[in-house]
């Protein structure tokens, strides 16, 4: 599926989302959307992910705000 000439895009080569081109052929075989999955099931999956989402909510403490940075 990948273009071997693309930077980071060749099969088996390392790459990342910001260095890989979208492949020329659309042969990427993805899992299909399942129309029987309900809104409630998706909400449950979302609720289960909330612990992880709260990783991105650190608050800066007063101690850190007031500490002198001068090393």
């Amino acid at each position: 599926m990948n273009n071997p000439e693309a930077p980071g895009g060749g099969r088996g080569r390392e790459g990342s989302l910001w260095t890989t081109r979208v492949p020329t052929a659309s042969g990427l075989d993805l899992a299909k959307v399942n129309q029987s999955v309900s809104a409630d099931e998706i909400r449950k999956a979302l609720a289960a992910a909330q612990d992880r989402a709260t990783t991105f909510t650190g608050r800066v403490s007063d101690d850190v705000l007031r500490a002198i940075v001068g090393g």
């Binding site: 299909k32 959307v33 399942n34 999956a45 991105f56």
Partner: peptide
């Protein structure tokens, strides 16, 4: 951005019955 990413990604994955 990362909170939005985790949440939306989780929902997209869920639409596939966690196949993706």
């Amino acid at each position: 951005l990362h909170t939005l990413g985790v949440n939306l990604g989780t929902m997209i994955v869920a639409t596939t019955g966690n196949g993706l």
